[in-house]
């Protein structure tokens, strides 16, 4: 029997064995802790609930207006040491120029041309799936500028989905400085709202602040292997 068939057979047998064995009640075994008693799982493996049974209780919608969403997203991003700026759509090109001034940077081929100030043109390198920049060359560049697909205000999360204005995953990873544009209409309030807008079969990267580690005595160090600097520009 192939490993596949054998494992699937074992799983079926294990599940079958579980439901025919004598039912020894284990619920009453641990007593004395009220929290243990009140927290007891009601669900048994044999009777899994219909999705509708648990889809309702947790929040799937938030009621925040645009100001509320922007304010919350800024607060959460800054908490994780990202640098955030909110600008009007018309000021976007200027804001990006300020962040990338003097730097050599990569830009995905679908990045809106009106967001790139003409003065930056000679320091921009364009990347696409068809004409990818070699990783060594990416490493030699100072920065990257991309747009983003969705943001989640409550967790301070920005999602890239590989669309032409965000580019291949490598370009937003290797350069040390990421300038990321968040169009205000892409901001969702909470996690379920954010995921509802995403297609998970695209290559997704969820970013919440610059890379970080707490591996040495739990002291947080921002900036390890991913970009050490994250600039977010929210465009209204």
């Amino acid at each position: 029997m192939s490993a596949r068939d054998e494992i699937l057979a074992r799983v079926r047998e294990a599940l079958g064995a579980g439901s025919v064995q004598g039912s020894r009640p284990v619920g009453a075994l641990v007593q004395g802790s009220p929290s243990v008693g009140s927290d007891r799982q009601e669900v048994t493996p044999e009777r899994a609930p219909e999705p509708s049974a648990y889809r309702t209780p947790y929040r799937t919608e938030s009621e925040m207006d645009e100001d509320g969403l922007v304010e919350l997203l800024v607060d959460r991003l800054e908490d994780y040491k990202a640098r955030v700026e909110v600008v009007a759509r018309g000021e976007l090109a200027g804001a990006i120029r300020k962040r990338l001034d003097g730097k050599r940077f990569v830009v995905p081929h679908g990045f809106p041309t009106e967001w790139l100030h003409p003065a930056l043109a000679d320091r921009a390198v364009t990347d696409s799936r068809e004409a990818p920049i070699a990783v060594e060359r990416l490493d030699a560049l100072d920065a990257v500028v991309t747009s983003s697909a969705v943001s989640i205000a409550e967790t301070g999360t920005i999602v890239l989905d590989g669309s032409p204005d965000q580019g291949r995953r490598a370009i937003s990873l290797v350069p040390d400085h990421h300038v990321c544009v968040v169009p205000v209409e892409t901001i969702a309030g909470i996690v379920p709202e954010g995921f509802a807008r995403l297609d998970v079969t695209r290559p997704l990267t969820l970013i919440s602040g610059p890379s970080a580690t707490s591996d040495i005595e739990l002291e947080r160090v921002e900036g390890v292997h991913g970009p050490r600097m994250l600039d977010v520009i929210i465009a209204r």
Binding site: R129, E154, V191, F195, V200, R202, P203, L204, S214
Partner: peptide, 30 residues
């Protein structure tokens, strides 16, 4: 939408971990 709320908060005590990657088979050119 459930596990991406449960895991980071329970694990590192963050609202969200800095990076999560999701991939589905092969994405040509990426």
């Amino acid at each position: 939408e459930v596990f991406m709320q449960l895991l980071p908060r329970s694990s590192t005590g963050e609202r969200m971990n800095p990076y999560t990657s999701l991939w589905t088979g092969v994405t040509p050119g990426d």
